[in-house]
Design a protein around this nucleic acid. Structure first.
Length: 561
RNA sequence: GCCCCUGUAGCUCAGCUGGAUAGAGCGCUGCCCUCCUAAGGCAGAUGUCAGACGUUCGAAUCGUCUCAGGGGCACCA
């Protein structure tokens, strides 16, 4: 619809050029917007105000010339000039309700563009180290990353979802030592508890399972415990597998899946880390100082150079990160999107600097990052501190238990990643009936309920029956709803471009609101048969859009509630 | 000290690649079920869009500065 209007305006501009009102170089491409106020029509453009100065006449006068130059068409029923020079368009009834046919025809594909082939994109998200259960922050990353992946898939990208973790570093050693201490009967209060040991309750569970010689299977590994509390290697391997299994269970409960689990250790094993250091050195981007090897990252916009190899010999953490991303590049991803917590912000410059230093033709702004701000958890009116070591700890699975998967996902994706998020557990629990997600789901369930009734009355009824009588949809509520439904494809592509899934949540709340208004104002089943069928078609189109939208958020669309 | 994010209704947040009287949910006030799910609708109250200056025909939106909150600036990961 927007495209059609744009094209009409372009034709109008061309004829003004032909008439000498404008010169060729002065033409700009028209911008169409959706007015907030319905009295301003269905669509509006500020084109006249933008071009008035160049055309040498007042905006309102130029607007009139533009309207006069519009080709004949069946889309627009009325135009008006308003305010300082806006041109408002009102759609004809037929072009407005035509979207219903489109939606019913395309069904589960409406709003998506899976057919366009945009290329390969890798989305890395969650990437939690296996040192504890997933917490609320991981949950936000999981919800946003998964939703991004769904959006990109829906808009034609070939998406690869990846989870990266370190299975062999210092943190894992601390984990193993903590479990070993537990297995030997120590508790975190004990003086001999490891210095940087983990203190959560799960360490005790883990130690029990180890002593019972349990075998665990995670998505990417299987390990059997031998129960020997002196065998640190076995403890380490078992602990990693046990926690990975826990994380898998949480992710599954959250509806999140990955195509690949990538191990940091594989970069060392395959020599990729060493090779990256070697190449950076050959390319002249490193220097030795104070016994350490430095990357001259200031050449690439960093505010200071960074140590790559410590005096003691080990690499700093960003070196394998560079190797990992070079690995991604070699796998052929033109686009890589990393969804991480904002506390990883400092890595962006370093990783990109390292990649630039490889002189491998990697673009400047590659990879892309989506960083989410902190989640503050409120319980009993007070902030719950997230500390693995202290063990007071809101896990993702706690949250799912308390407020449900759909509400958790919705809450965590419905706000912009750049905004800090306050998750008030008491509020989410005590008022779970009034969660916005239910408002949207209820609209979906309501349509399903009406459709069940319609089938009871007439077993042969199908939603497309109403396409014959769409011209009977004349109520303001029906036309407003149809217009909103027609915006869905645009909302999806914009959300995908901006990498902002919360646009979908906001849009769906609007759709649900307009449907509820329509539902309360007009009976569907009791109307005259052609009218009833048309309204049912509109309702079914609404159901489809809500279902397609919720699918992008990983939230279910129930048929009854 | 430097960098990033944020500051909009009592609360939680949209709107931010500039547009016409600033929105939603919760909460608050009053209505609407002999009727397809009232987990709903309708009507109403609520704002120094943190502040100042600037750019513009037009600024919550862009720029500079100030203030406030959060995060980051390791030879930790």
């Amino acid at each position: 619809m927007k495209e059609a209007l744009t094209s009409l305006l372009e034709q109008a501009l061309q004829s003004l050029v032909a008439a000498g009102t404008l010169s060729d170089g002065e033409v700009v491409s028209p911008k169409i917007e959706h007015p907030k106020d319905p009295s301003h029509g269905d669509f509006a453009t500020n084109l006249a105000m933008v071009l008035a100065k160049r055309a040498g006449m007042p905006p309102r006068e130029f607007a009139q010339r533009l309207i006069d130059a519009l080709p004949d068409n069946s889309l627009i029923e009325g135009t008006e000039i308003a305010g300082p020079g806006f041109i408002n368009f009102r759609l004809s009834q037929a072009s407005n309700t035509g979207v219903i046919r489109e939606i019913l025809t395309q069904g589960a594909e409406y709003g998506y563009q899976r057919h366009t082939r945009r290329g390969k994109v890798q989305v890395e998200f969650v990437s939690a180290n296996p040192t504890g259960p997933l917490h609320v922050g991981h949950g936000r990353g999981a919800a946003i990353g998964d939703s991004l992946s769904r959006l990109l898939t829906a808009t034609g990208w070939d998406v690869h979802r990846e989870f990266y973790y370190n299975d062999a570093g210092q943190q894992i050693s601390n984990l193993a030592l903590s479990v070993q201490a537990r297995a030997k009967g120590l508790t975190p209060e004990n003086a001999n508890w490891p210095d940087d040991g983990y203190r959560g309750e799960y360490i005790a569970d883990l130690a029990d399972a180890f002593l019972k010689k349990e075998a665990v299977a995670a998505a990417d590994r299987e390990v059997a415990a031998n129960g020997d509390s002196d065998d640190l290697d076995n403890i380490r391997a078992f602990a990693v597998a046990w926690l990975r299994r826990e994380q898998d269970a949480d992710l599954k409960a959250f509806g999140v899946q990955f195509d690949e689990y990538f191990l940091e250790s594989s970069l060392y094993d395959g020599g990729e880390v060493d090779r990256v250091v070697e190449e950076l050195t050959i390319n002249g981007h490193t220097y030795e100082q104070d016994g350490a090897l430095w990357l001259r990252s200031t050449e690439f916009g960093d505010d200071k150079d960074r140590v790559m190899r410590k005096r003691e010999g080990g690499y700093t953490y960003f070196v394998p990160d560079v190797a990992y991303h070079r690995n991604k590049w070699r796998r052929g991803y033109q686009r890589v999107i990393n969804e991480q917590g904002a506390d990883h912000h400092s890595t962006i410059t370093r990783v990109r600097a390292g990649l630039q230093g490889l002189d491998a033709g990697i673009p400047d702004g590659w990879p892309e990052y989506v960083l989410h701000q902190m989640v503050t958890v409120m319980r009993d009116g007070a902030e719950v501190k997230l500390s693995k070591r202290a063990g007071s700890y809101v896990t993702l699975s706690d949250l799912i238990d308390w407020v449900g998967r759909d509400a958790t996902r919705f809450f965590l994706t419905a706000r912009a990643a750049t905004s800090q998020l306050t998750f008030d557990i008491d509020l989410a629990r005590s008022q779970s009936n009034e969660n916005p997600v239910y408002y949207i789901q209820y609209a979906h369930a309501r349509v399903c309920s009406v459709e069940r009734k319609a089938r009871q009355q007439d077993p042969d009824w199908t939603p497309t029956d109403g396409l014959e009588s769409l011209d009977t949809l004349i109520e303001p509520e029906a036309l407003a709803l149809a217009l909103t439904l027609s915006r869905f494809p645009e909302v999806v592509s914009t959300a995908a471009e901006r990498l902002e899934p919360h646009d979908i949540a906001n849009y769906l709340r609007g759709v649900a609101g307009e449907f509820h208004s329509f539902y309360n104002a007009h009976k569907m089943l009791d109307a005259e048969p052609p009218v009833a069928r048309a309204r049912l078609a509109l309702a079914d189109a609404t159901r489809q859009v809500i279902a397609n939208g919720l699918a992008l958020l990983g939230v279910s669309a129930p048929e009854s509630m």
